[in-house]
């Protein structure tokens, strides 16, 4: 066990623990807050795994934007303070599939890697990642930008009912 292992174990425990709370808590908004903890712990894992840039992108995009959007949505849909009892469906099929997927994957990975040791590579800095993106992965990058644009336009059109009807109104 090295220091990195201890950190990985600790952060992993935090991530799984808060992840468990995300899917089991009865408090709507607290689920979002546990998600913040979970994503933060995952960002910490990235840092230990020398993926500096990805870790801070995770904080910027996930904690700063995605979770905030989720919390925003929770509040806009009138989340009550305190526990709500109508959040869940009957549990055992979900438990079966989810537990099966999680434990099965875990077993697979444990079997594949055992207790092998890997040296940590040099840090994934912005410079190296940038070089890699624009040397090997330019096409996916461009496709992603188009996807993002499409999602942006789609989100605006879906959330603004007045856009679609404005044209009809003009026809009439």
């Amino acid at each position: 066990m090295t220091a990195a292992d201890v950190l990985l174990l600790g952060l992993g425990a935090v991530a799984v623990g808060s992840g468990l709370l995300v899917v089991t808590t009865k408090h709507l908004v607290r689920a979002g807050l546990y998600l913040v903890v979970c994503l933060g712990a995952v960002a910490g894992l990235y840092l230990v795994l020398t993926a500096e840039l990805v870790a801070w992108v995770q904080v910027l995009i996930y904690v700063g934007a995605v979770v905030v959007l989720l919390l925003f949505a929770v509040m806009l849909t009138r989340a009550p303070i305190g526990a709500s009892d109508d959040l869940d469906r009957p549990g055992w099929p979900a438990l079966l599939v989810g537990g099966g997927a999680g434990l099965g994957l875990a077993a697979l990975l444990i079997d594949a890697f055992r207790w092998t040791k890997v040296d940590l590579p040099e840090a994934g800095t912005a410079e190296r990642l940038g070089t890699e993106i624009f040397r090997s992965w330019v096409l996916p990058f461009e496709v992603l930008s188009v996807l993002l644009l499409a999602a942006l336009v789609g989100a605006i059109i879906v959330s603004r009912p007045d856009i679609g009807t404005a044209g009809k109104g003009a026809d009439r």
């Binding site: 801070w56 992108v57 910027l60 904690v63 700063g64 934007a65 509040m75 303070i81 840090a123 800095t125």
Partner: peptide, 27 residues
């Protein structure tokens, strides 16, 4: 930090979670 600018922007962005927490939890 090698990516200090990124770090600063990312961490400043976390502040909004606090506003949402205090705003919602106050009832």
């Amino acid at each position: 930090l090698d990516i200090g600018l990124f770090f600063a922007l990312a961490v400043v962005g976390v502040g909004v979670v606090a506003v949402l927490m205090s705003g919602w939890a106050s009832a």
